[in-house]
């Protein structure tokens, strides 16, 4: 029995089982799953029921999708000042300019990308030493992988990489000159085929 057979038979079995809702878990238990509240054993029990009951699965999905929408709509925690926003907007402009010039930019990979909305939050800021050259960002819900790009102000690509982690080590090949500013941005590739992007953020590469 291959994987496809298992999936088809399981879904058939789950549809047949839920004639009554006697054993259904309360809606609050489904919410606990989505919000990861309470003991894991209880949450697993709720998931195991919901995945064998079409009604509970649909209800869980309504709550799960709502949660994901909330997570994606989160505003950045920094930058609650117009000045900071303007700096970000300027950085984004430079970055977009660089992407237009560079044929291997993120936008060439295809798919739907909601760029510049800060759906992926960058953590690393300020000076980045090549001794400890890590770029860090917050994980995005549903992300299968992240594409990281580091560019000079003129749009020249310095480094590009794909990772499943939320840390990217700037390669040794990227050498910092005096006053070497750069912009970096992250695009999260989601499992549903869409993408979420951070705004570009300026960093200073120091030797």
């Amino acid at each position: 029995m291959n994987e496809e057979d298992l999936v088809r038979l399981y879904q058939r079995g789950a549809t047949r089982r839920e004639a009554t809702r006697d054993g259904c878990v309360p809606p609050e238990a489904l919410l606990d799953v989505v919000e990861r509240r309470g003991p894991e054993a209880t949450r697993l029990q709720s998931v195991n029921h919901a995945m064998a009951c079409a009604d509970c699965r649909e209800e869980l999905e309504l709550l799960r999708a709502t949660r994901i929408v909330r997570d994606r709509a989160r505003l950045p925690r920094f930058g609650f000042a117009l000045a900071a926003s303007l700096v970000l907007a300027a950085g984004l402009g430079f970055y977009a300019f660089g992407r237009q010039r560079a044929p291997t930019g993120l936008g060439d990979a295809g798919g739907v990308t909601r760029s510049g909305s800060d759906d992926v939050q960058l953590v690393t800021t300020g000076a980045v030493s090549t001794q400890a050259p890590n770029l860090v960002w917050r994980s995005a819900t549903g992300a299968a992988s992240y594409v990281v790009e580091l560019r000079r102000e003129d749009g020249t690509l310095l480094a590009r990489g794909t990772t499943a982690d939320t840390v990217f080590a700037v390669p040794d090949s990227v050498r910092a000159g005096p006053d070497s500013d750069a912009y970096w941005a992250v695009t999260a590739r989601l499992s549903d085929g869409t993408s979420l992007s951070s705004t570009a953020r300026r960093i200073r590469l120091t030797p």
Binding site: R57, E58, E61, L62, R64, A65, V69, G142, D192, T194
Partner: peptide, 13 residues
């Protein structure tokens, strides 16, 4: 639209 895009694949009507 956002909820439906995420949930439809998993049976949200």
């Amino acid at each position: 639209e956002s909820v439906l895009r995420i949930g439809r694949r998993h049976g949200l009507s």
